[in-house]
């Protein structure tokens, strides 16, 4: 069975430091101003009864990736039949249908070249058995990566054990980035 890669991020320990964002930038040489991942801070309540949550967000590498389905040329594709969604610049026309199709606004245009870019789950590292750069840099160790089709993987175990949620599952995209609470 091809892997179903997932990221599981523990909001109990995430401090929103942004190390994952810088690690992604340097690992993948992402041009200034463009971001494949980012941090959202969500504060609810009224002083002094508050909760604040930090979320490191990126492409959800959806099992039902509407971006892949929207692509007219096959540039957006699943990597080796896993759920990792990649863009092949040599096939991308820059029509931006995938950008419109992503409910998480996780795609971007590479300027000045013009093709669409996005988080790759660092598949070049995954292929070597390493975690994505963001996961392996996180100083609080709040990020985890693995294969949900492997019941023994850290991500499977965490999702079994802990309460979790994905972002906007109601989109039907079956996102694969999960947040533990």
């Amino acid at each position: 069975m091809p892997a179903r890669y997932a990221m599981v991020i523990d909001t109990r320990t995430c401090i929103g430091c942004g190390d994952c964002v810088v690690a992604c930038k340097t690992e993948n040489n992402v041009p200034a101003g463009l971001n494949r991942d980012w941090i959202v801070e969500a504060t609810r309540g009224r002083y002094p009864n508050l909760t604040t949550e930090f979320r490191s967000e990126r492409c959800n590498h959806c099992s039902h990736a509407t971006c892949v389905y929207a692509c007219p040329t096959g540039a957006s594709h699943y990597w080796q039949n896993t759920n990792i969604v990649l863009v092949e610049p040599g096939k991308c026309t820059g029509c931006k249908a995938c950008i419109a199709a992503c409910p998480y606004d996780a795609r971007l245009i590479m300027h000045p070249q013009g093709y669409v870019d996005k988080c790759t789950f660092c598949h070049h590292r995954v292929a070597r058995g390493q975690d994505p750069a963001c996961v392996s840099s996180c100083p609080t160790h709040c990020m985890h990566f693995g294969d949900l089709n492997d019941a023994n993987s850290i991500v499977s175990q965490l999702l079994d054990r802990r309460k979790s949620r994905a972002l906007k599952p109601e989109t039907g995209n079956q996102p694969n980035v999960f947040y533990l609470s």
Binding site: W38, R46, D105
Partner: peptide, 19 residues
Amino acid sequence: MIEEILITARDNAKVDPYL
């Protein structure tokens, strides 16, 4: 009140601040 903000700067062309 819900305050949901980006705390790392993101300026993805034609995606930010809105599509």
